[in-house]
């Protein structure tokens, strides 16, 4: 899907041609504070597709990162000895500076979305693993004792009790991960011509700090992060009505 969108984006001129410059306003030529007409002209060709790519890069990273973290957390919940090594490895990945990670990976995996996703996914692991595990172990001893005493097998107890009770903590982790990743995808724009980072870098920084591109890229990135956070918060309220009942007391 990313490839398809990348192909779509490639049809639009990456660097404005002379005719485009010819049509542009005085604002763009003089690099005014903010040029609405540039945004209007380049929305369908550059900014819109970049936004879509940004969302896709972030969503793929969080989904894959969550899938890996979730499985690791379930394993670690059953086999507690796994907790220190998994935490150590995911912390290690988390501490590598993002830019460095991209440059370390490029010689191995090349300049492509795959490289970007590897780096992004590795950043989600620590947050998602830690929160999922904390959620699972967070059920009170009495609740767990009751589940066992009423005749639930360990697997039934995990899926019917510990996991549903872990949802608020897991979603809290997802919210942090999503916001972090949305901002990190911007850095990926230095490596691949995708996402809002590419708008900032290619259209802004590389063109004598073209103000409009810098602002559009930055603002959309913030709006996207806020929207994603609100979406997840709303989703959590929907699937855990009991947590709201608890809060209202």
């Amino acid at each position: 899907m990313i490839v398809a969108v990348a192909a779509l984006a490639a049809k639009a001129p990456v660097i404005p041609g002379s005719d485009a410059y010819g049509k542009t306003s005085k604002c763009v030529k003089d690099n005014g504070t903010f040029c609405w007409d540039w945004v209007r002209d380049r929305w369908s060709g550059t900014v819109g597709p970049a936004l879509v790519q940004h969302i896709q890069l972030a969503v793929v990273a969080v989904v894959i990162g969550f899938a890996i973290s979730f499985v690791l957390a379930l394993l670690a919940y059953r086999a507690r000895w796994l907790v220190p090594p998994v935490t150590f490895l995911s912390s290690l990945l988390y501490t590598v500076p993002s830019l460095a990670a991209f440059y370390i990976l490029v010689p191995i995996t090349g300049i492509n979305d795959f490289t970007v996703e590897i780096a992004l996914v590795s950043y989600t692991l620590l947050i998602l693993f830690t929160n999922t595990l904390a959620g699972l172990t967070g059920a009170s001893g009495d609740v767990r004792d009751a589940a066992r005493g009423l005749g639930m097998t360990p697997t039934q107890s995990l899926w019917r009790v510990e996991l549903p009770l872990a949802v608020p903590t897991i979603v809290a982790g997802l919210r942090v991960a999503v916001v972090t990743i949305i901002s990190l995808v911007t850095v990926a724009g230095l490596i691949v011509p995708d996402g809002l980072g590419a708008v900032i870098y290619t259209e802004g920084l590389k063109k004598n700090n073209f103000n409009t591109a810098l602002i559009v890229g930055g603002v959309l990135c913030i709006v996207l992060a806020l929207a994603a956070d609100a979406l997840l918060a709303g989703l959590q309220r929907l699937i855990t009505p009991w947590a709201a009942a608890r809060r209202s007391r």
Binding site: V143, A146, L165, R246
Partner: peptide
Amino acid sequence: QHVGLFPH
């Protein structure tokens, strides 16, 4: 003693 009702 602490009942252990399932909060969810």
